[in-house]
């Protein structure tokens, strides 16, 4: 059962400087939500703070009426640039298998069924032919697909993806957005940090627009408007001419 996701009053500072100020929003399940804002707006920080990966000054994230700490296993997170060692002795299929760990708990090894499921997830992102490759021997787009497959393997209800489309090829982007749409149709909640304004309308149902403070949050038609965008990007409106921003 997926439930609504609510952030209330989230604020984060790095060495005294507040980079996320009092951000609140709530979204119902079954939505593909873009987190939008200029570089340095605090999008990645907001995501990490929601997940409890960094210290907040204030605020909380709730899934339904539960604190996010109680439902960690329902959440899959794909960071912006995984700060992993690409030379680690692990192959693609074993990387995807890591997705089954959260629900296994201590002392349990992945079963045959878990391994089959990991392969299934790898197929969904079209990477089954690379199953035995070492993780560093892939292109950026392929790596991103593998990490998405790992997120799928988690059988999560809430997906947090930070800039999944940056530095990847067109076909990888198509595969990934296709999967995110399917997840949404299955009633999952998918949050995606994104900064390419040209795809916003076709990709997302809902938007969180921020630049340190929250500018607006809600359906795309409501948020993706010139007034909001000018405030967020602090630039003249001509910039948005091609983007079908609502006037």
């Amino acid at each position: 059962m997926t439930e609504s996701i609510t952030a209330s009053n989230i604020s984060v500072s790095y060495s005294g400087k507040q980079v996320v100020s009092n951000v609140s929003f709530t979204f119902e399940p079954g939505s593909l939500i873009g987190i939008l804002g200029p570089n340095g707006a605090g999008k990645s920080t907001l995501m990490k703070a929601m997940l409890g990966l960094i210290k907040k000054n204030s605020g909380a994230t709730q899934i339904g009426s539960e604190s996010i700490d109680k439902v960690r296993k329902l959440i899959a997170y794909v960071p912006q640039r995984s700060n992993i060692d690409w030379n680690f002795p692990i192959v693609v299929k074993d990387t995807v298998l890591l997705g089954t760990y959260p629900k296994l708990g201590l002392f349990h090894r992945p079963s045959k069924a878990d391994k089959a499921w990991a392969m299934e997830c790898l197929k969904q992102v079209g990477m089954q032919d690379f199953a035995d490759r070492q993780i560093g021997e892939l292109s950026g787009g392929q790596q991103q697909r593998v990490f998405l497959a790992r997120a799928l393997a988690q059988k999560a209800d809430y997906f947090f993806l930070d800039e999944p489309f940056v530095g990847i090829d067109v076909s990888s982007e198509e595969v990934i957005i296709g999967i995110l749409r399917k997840l949404k149709d299955a009633g999952k909640t998918v949050l995606v940090v994104h900064h390419d304004l040209s795809k916003v309308k076709s990709y997302f149902d809902d938007l969180i627009l921020m630049n340190n403070v929250l500018i607006d949050a809600g359906p795309v038609e409501q948020v993706f408007r010139e007034k909001n965008m000018t405030r967020a990007y602090e630039r003249p409106m001509t910039m948005f001419d091609d983007l079908e921003v609502q006037m």
């Binding site: 700490d69 296993k73 997170y77 060692d85 680690f88 890591l98 760990y101």
Partner: peptide
């Protein structure tokens, strides 16, 4: 998992 991807390890608790 904590040696390979500390972020994921922390994210799932």
């Amino acid at each position: 998992i904590s040696s390979f991807d500390e972020t994921m390890a922390a994210a799932y608790g």
